[in-house]
Design a protein around this nucleic acid. Structure first.
Length: 495
RNA sequence: CGGGGCGUGGCUCAGCCUGGUAGAGCACCUGGUUCGGGACCAGGGGGUCGGAGGUUCAAAUCCUCUCGCCCCGACCA
């Protein structure tokens, strides 16, 4: 799938002509995305360039994401903490690669209370340093380990080009930080968290992901190894869903995080960090959305069902609302997140479109005819038009909707997986490779050399997304240089 | 930081070339008719034309500077 470059004037003209409709996803993916975020009221632009205001509907989605992950973090023994927003500038300088990576994108506070500060403070771009600093105080013995922490917060990275949810100067995320006595334990933690993210991505976000290892050039500044989950968006571009880093002893050495082992020997801890940001909201939009707007996975949707009442006369209104309110109560009792659209002055048709824009998985249409039959019309968001509509009896509605939500959840994942597979190729030679990354992912042998990675990037604009953990086995030749290669890697254009 | 585009009611834009009473559609408010896929009529509220300076009797319109936003490239969750 290839998208033509945008001309602001053409876009403006198109926008003015049809305010009701979004730009077609297939014609202008990026403009479709931008407008959808605004129109579905997920987020808005802040007065400061590159900053984002997350609106109630968007934040409700994020809260569901938070709960889904927090549950899993707690179940694996992690505890939530809160570290400060401001970090002494000198902390950043203590780990060599960390400084190099983050210096260009730091926001720095130099004045406090009207006075120039003796030492500038950076607004955290991530918290490894300040956490390392505190750990050096808290950790003395192997009995203090492991330390398993997580914090939900926001961080600031001064990015040049920004887009709502995908890249903003400030973004919300969680950052997990752990310290362990052994390398093996820390490595296991890194992988465990990647598994947890995978479980969340597949089962809650309905997004198929490829767990894998990052190249040296793409890994986190200060990590020994970075793992990520890579996903394919609806325009066939790659998006990094989250990361999990094995930090080795890099930060424990920089901050003197040491413990006394059973033999009485002083050892440096082995640490990890892992994070997932509001960017996944962008992923959900770009993976599942369609021309009508958002399509939210039931497990994360702020509303899993919406009841749209239909009536003409006041009598009808009374009876329809009475039934609708009772229905709503029944659904709430069945633990279905439901809302009843009681807005006056909008026609049912308008409401149908509005809730489709917002991606509510199941719509319940309830009119006088339905009440008479003690039934309702159910429309599934993932199957537009009449095909997605069924009639169901009111008595069975909670059960029917529950079943639909499960089906929709699965169907979204299947559809996304089929799409990714259809757009992932195994090119036979470099010419085929070039064509493949124009329109999707290429899964190719790679010699592991940075030189080939760079050459590919320059010639195709595609980057090495990850070396999937799941390897087909065997050996081959590097798609770029033809040298023997042991591993296959995913290449693609990325966000 | 380079290249392109754009700043006019909440939104999308017209008006600018050729200076002379600030407009339209949508949204909003009121009333009425509507309501099973984006309803209609009537009335109404709302804008120091991004900002500063200049030219002029007179500036949304011309000139200079400036700020901001969007899109395309170089850095990145």
């Amino acid at each position: 799938m290839v998208f033509a470059p945008k001309d602001a004037k053409v876009l403006a003209a198109g926008r003015g002509m049809s305010e009701l409709k979004l730009p077609a996803r297939s014609e202008d993916f990026s403009e479709w995305y931008n407008q959808l975020v605004l129109r579905a009221e997920l987020a808005d632009y802040a007065p400061v360039r590159g900053c984002m205001i997350v609106r109630p509907y968007g934040w409700a989605l994020w809260e569901n994401i938070q709960q889904a992950l927090d549950r899993r973090f707690k179940a694996t023994g992690h505890q939530n903490v809160a570290f400060p927003l401001l970090i002494p500038r000198s902390f950043i300088d203590k780990e060599k690669h960390h400084v190099e990576g983050f210096s260009p994108e730091l926001a720095v506070v130099t004045i406090g209370g009207g006075e120039e500060l003796a030492e500038p403070l950076v607004i955290r771009p991530t918290s490894e340093t300040i956490i390392g600093h505190m750990w050096s105080k808290w950790i003395q013995s192997y009995r203090d380990l492991p330390v398993l922490m997580n914090q939900w917060n926001s961080v600031v990275r001064w990015e040049l080009r920004t887009r709502l949810f995908l890249r903003t100067l400030e973004f919300y995320w969680q950052e997990g930080h752990t310290a362990h006595a052994t390398r093996e334990e820390a490595e296991a933690e890194t992988r465990q968290m990647l598994d947890i993210y995978t479980d969340f991505a597949v089962n809650d976000a309905a997004i198929p992901v490829i767990p894998g290892k990052k190249s040296d050039s793409e890994k986190f500044a200060g990590a020994d190894t970075t793992f990520s989950l890579e996903a394919m968006m609806g325009d066939c571009k790659a998006l990094q869903f989250c990361t999990s880093h094995f930090l080795g002893q890099n930060f424990s050495k920089a901050f003197e995080v040491r413990y006394l082992d059973k033999e009485g020997q002083l050892q440096h801890c082995w640490t990890t960090s892992w994070g997932l940001s509001t960017r996944v909201i962008g992923a959900i939009i770009m993976v599942h959305g369609d021309d009508q707007g958002l399509v939210l996975p039931p497990k994360l949707a702020p509303y899993q069902a919406v009841i749209v009442p239909i009536f003409k006369t006041d009598e009808e209104k009374t009876i329809v609302f009475e039934t609708a309110r009772k229905l709503k109560a029944d659904l709430v009792k069945a633990n279905i997140r439901v809302t009843l659209d009681e807005r006056e002055g909008s026609s049912p048709g308008w409401k149908f479109n509005d809730w489709e824009m917002r991606g509510v998985p199941v719509r319940v249409e309830l009119g006088p005819k339905d009440v008479a039959k003690q039934s309702a019309v159910l429309a599934r968001r993932d199957r537009p038009g009449k095909e997605g509509k069924i009639s169901a009896s009111l008595a069975d509605l909670p059960a029917t909707i529950e079943r639909l939500l499960v089906e929709i959840q699965q169907s979204l994942h299947h559809k996304a997986l089929a799409f990714r597979e259809a757009n992932t190729r195994d090119p036979k030679d470099y010419a085929e490779f070039k064509a493949a990354v124009e329109t999707g992912f290429a899964f190719s042998f790679w010699c592991g050399r940075a030189k080939c990675e760079e050459q590919i990037k320059e010639e195709t604009k595609a980057t090495m997304r990850c070396i999937p953990l799941d390897q087909p086995g065997g050996e081959g030749r590097c798609i770029c240089c033809g040298q023997p290669a042991k591993e296959k890697a995913i290449f693609g254009r990325a966000y």
